[in-house]
Design a protein around this nucleic acid. Structure first.
Length: 760
RNA sequence: GCCGGAGUGGCGGAACUGGCAGACGCGCGGGAUUCAAAAUCCCGAGGGGCUUAAGCCCCGUGUGGGUUCGACUCCCACCCCCGGCACCA
């Protein structure tokens, strides 16, 4: 890998190479983990603070106190469902589960809650969202992250369970449809399900919950078309009108979003509509569509096709008769004293109304989930955590880092779901300084952990006492340009930002955001326009290309292929093409027979055209490098080389300038030419050639003359000719006169340097 | 289904802020050089048609409309491809 990168001639500083699996590196990954563990997020200040600063309510028992702190640490333990395969005795990643069975062996996989480490990235949701405004990233990536965070504003509302102490809290973005809530749905995993289920339904409910547990996330969504569910026997009281509504469980409600429970308004929510239709639950319309919204419905499109006159009226009537589900805005109906309010007004009014009565309040929800940060694998950074015999979780102190991985006989899973490290008993069992016995955490950190902050380590890779020295961090950060594949658009780039924000809050880094500018490079496809893969046999080996054509041709071709950001197919003939260009340049400078500087390269002044092309080339290449338009920079240099090759005397200064601007693209060849042009030192020490804007302009320009937009002739005028002169010259053309055929010119549009358009 | 990006010769692609579409490269055709070939150099070329010819005409940037003196570029509707998300209440 390193050899290959070097062979391309990249100017990497190899002294700064880091290895995230090196204990000297992951010591600091563990250090950052301790920072997460020992911090909490102050929602008022919107920033992380040391856990010692956490205000703790008075009068808590010791265990309550610990729980209180635990619930606020940015790294915490929780039971989260994982893909557990009993047959293989191991936890599988999502992509290892296909259709509810393991990819290898086809054994059943269930979703089993297991103890996991989680990172409270959700606390940073707003910060991560806001930060996107300050970075120079492609719009598409910012959108992707915005959607991933998925902020939505609504209300949380409490529903009293009839005959119970318990209330079910729900989140809704449409509190204005409360009067249309005809039933409730809890996620099968919802903690209240057991308590509220009546005896008659208990067996059915349990059966349904088991069925749901067996489905993977994938299956749940795949089966979206066909809704399933089970009545619990319990009823809730609709807080706005006291109506009793049945409580169901169904896996179309996700435990991980909102509160894991919803109020169902089938008239105005498509999922609820489908469910209500299937289980024959009542539907009450509470929003009368605005005329505008009515026109946007599918039914409206259909009615228009049938040439119905009053489309909006028909749609409104259909909504009122519960014939269609309407999810847009409108005016409240069937909503008691709120009738007539617009959707927006109603939302505000009802939220206030609920808040006054202590039944609900405004709430914000995010799609973003806390980050499941542990893996049941051997390879990964060990957590600097000890679980004591008296059931406490203790973190190592920073001076006890690093905590290395033990040598083990094998890396295979244990079969019990315990991670492989659990087998290493002498590593696992420890005695704390105070004499207490404990066991080390045996989960390890995911691949993402080390890659979350490597850009910081590059700044100070050998520092043994700090992750990065502040003065170095301050000098280098932020990262000016991050070029990466779009596959990292959300995960890696979100996790990195999250860690960076934490380090910023704690004062270890000086910039709120790590990556100022971001570019997604496009994938290079095989010659068959398919993704390169061994199985397709379309893989291009750079070693081979470099051996056959040289590193400069390889580099130049990659840049000449097309825009950096788009996917494009490789072409061996294209490599051939740029290789020819480099050869031609060589022959422009070097006499092929003698191998020495060509006799026709002479220290003579360049003629006007050569001068102009040279200055245009210097300008274009400089500008294109700034905008990453390498393909057009190269094409301009090709134009100039083509021109030079036609000259019988080639001015040394033009040749030298060309070599200097091409050097970043084809460094090896250019260095060689530079030497042969008589310079003993590397061209790397030369300044970038300057261009004179006045020399980029020609004295005369050719303009197209159009009559009614069709080109009839081309005229040559002085570059600085004024509009009147250009118009006169255009009218003087015989071809133009012929095209005008005696008609009078109503208007002449003259665009200097471009064209003349005569309107008749 | 929703969101984002794109669609230009045989191919990769270029075109400033609405101003000569197809730069540059590949491939292709013709020629020069050569005993021959490779390499190299020169010329040609978007498609179609008219003309003995110089030349001329029509069509043309996914499709159909629109705005404009003028549209690859702006607006509306649609088609196709790529990427992402996918019961997020």
């Amino acid at each position: 890998m390193r050899r290959q990168v070097k062979s391309l001639g990249f100017s990497y500083d190899w002294d700064r190479q880091v290895d995230t699996t090196d204990i000297r590196y992951y010591k600091w990954t563990q250090w950052i983990f301790l920072k997460l563990f020992n911090s909490w997020f102050d929602e008022d200040l919107q920033k992380a603070r040391p856990i010692e600063d956490l205000p703790i309510p008075e009068g808590l028992l010791e265990t309550q106190r610990e729980q209180y702190i635990h619930d606020r640490r940015l790294a915490y333990e929780a039971f989260a469902p994982v893909n557990w395969c009993p047959e293989l005795g191991t936890v599988l990643a999502n992509e290892e589960v296909v259709g509810g069975v393991s990819e290898r062996g086809g054994h059943p996989v269930i979703r089993k809650p297991m103890r996991q480490w989680m990172l409270r990235i959700t606390q940073y949701a707003d910060r991560l969202l806001k930060g996107l405004d300050s970075v120079d990233w492609p719009e598409s990536i910012r959108k992707l992250q915005t959607d991933w965070i998925g902020r939505s504003v609504g209300a949380s509302v409490d529903f009293q369970v009839d005959g119970h102490e318990d209330v079910v809290r729900i989140f809704t973005t449409r509190p204005d449809t409360l009067f249309g809530a005809t039933y409730m749905v809890l996620a099968p995993e919802h903690p209240l399900v057991d308590a509220i289920t009546t005896e008659v339904y208990r067996a059915d409910v349990n059966r349904y919950r088991e069925l749901a547990a067996r489905k993977s996330d994938m299956d749940r969504t795949d089966l979206a078309k066909d809704k399933t569910g089970q009545f619990t026997g319990a009823y809730a009281v609709n807080p706005v009108n006291g109506v009793l509504i049945p409580i169901w469980i169904s896996d179309y409600v996700l435990i991980s979003y909102g509160t894991g429970a919803i109020m169902a308004v089938p008239a105005h929510d498509e999922r609820d509509w489908e469910f209500a239709k299937k289980f024959e639950l009542p539907i009450i319309p509470v929003v009368q569509p605005t005329v505008e919204a009515a026109h946007k419905t599918d039914l409206a499109a259909k009615l228009r096709a049938e040439a119905i006159k009053d489309v909006a009226g028909a749609v409104i009537a259909a909504v009122k008769r519960c014939e269609i589900c309407f999810i847009g805005d409108g005016a409240a109906i069937n909503s008691g004293s709120f009738n007539g309010l617009s959707t927006a007004e109603f939302k505000t009014k009802i939220t206030d109304w609920l808040a006054e009565r202590g039944l609900g309040k405004q709430a914000v929800c995010y799609k973003l989930r806390d980050w499941l940060f542990s893996r049941q694998r051997y390879w990964g950074e060990p957590f600097p955590i000890i679980h004591t015999a008296d059931d406490k979780t203790v973190a190592l102190s920073e001076r006890d880092l690093p905590l290395g991985l033990p040598e083990v006989a094998d890396y295979k899973p244990t079969g019990t779901g315990e991670p492989p490290l659990a087998k290493s008993t002498e590593w696992v069992n420890v005695t704390l300084p105070d004499g207490r016995k404990g066991k080390r955490e045996t989960n390890t950190m995911p691949q993402w952990a080390g890659s979350c902050w490597y850009y910081l380590r590059y700044l100070d890779p050998h520092n043994e006492s700090q992750a990065v020295a502040p003065e170095k961090e301050n000098y280098w950060m932020p990262v000016d340009l991050y070029i990466g594949g779009a596959e990292h658009a959300v995960l890696h780039l979100m996790y990195s930002r999250f860690w960076h924000h934490l380090l910023y809050d704690l004062g270890y880094v000086s910039t709120p955001e790590p990556f100022r500018k971001l570019i997604n490079q496009g994938m290079i496809l095989g010659e068959d326009n398919q993704k390169m893969s061994k199985s397709r046999g379309n893989v291009i080996n750079p070693d081979k290309v470099i051996a056959d054509y040289g590193a400069d041709s390889m580099r130049l071709y990659e840049m000449f292929m097309g825009p950096l950001e788009v996917a494009k197919p490789w072409s061996m003939q294209g490599v051939e093409g740029v290789h020819r260009f480099l050869n031609r340049l060589w022959r422009v400078v070097i006499d092929d027979n003698t191998g020495r500087l060509s006799d026709i390269v002479q220290p003579v002044p360049a003629d006007e055209e050569t001068q102009r092309l040279l200055h245009q080339t210097i300008r274009k290449v400089g500008e294109d490098i700034e905008t990453f338009g390498f393909n057009t920079a190269i094409s301009q240099m090709m134009i100039f080389v083509n021109h030079l090759s036609k000259l019988t005397t080639r001015p040394t200064n033009a040749v030298e300038s060309l070599v200097l601007v091409l050097a970043p693209f084809a460094p090896h060849l250019c260095e060689e030419l530079w030497r042969r042009l008589g310079h003993p030192d590397s061209l790397a020490y030369e300044p970038w050639p300057a261009f004179d804007p006045s020399r980029t302009r020609a004295k005369t320009v050719e303009l197209a003359v159009q009559v009614l937009g069709k080109i009839k002739d081309r005229i040559v005028v002085a570059a600085d000719a004024d509009i009147a002169a250009i118009e006169a010259a255009a009218l003087a053309s015989e071809k133009v006169q012929a095209a005008l055929a005696g008609k009078t010119v109503k208007k002449a549009i003259v665009v200097q340097g471009r064209l003349v358009n005569l309107v008749v």
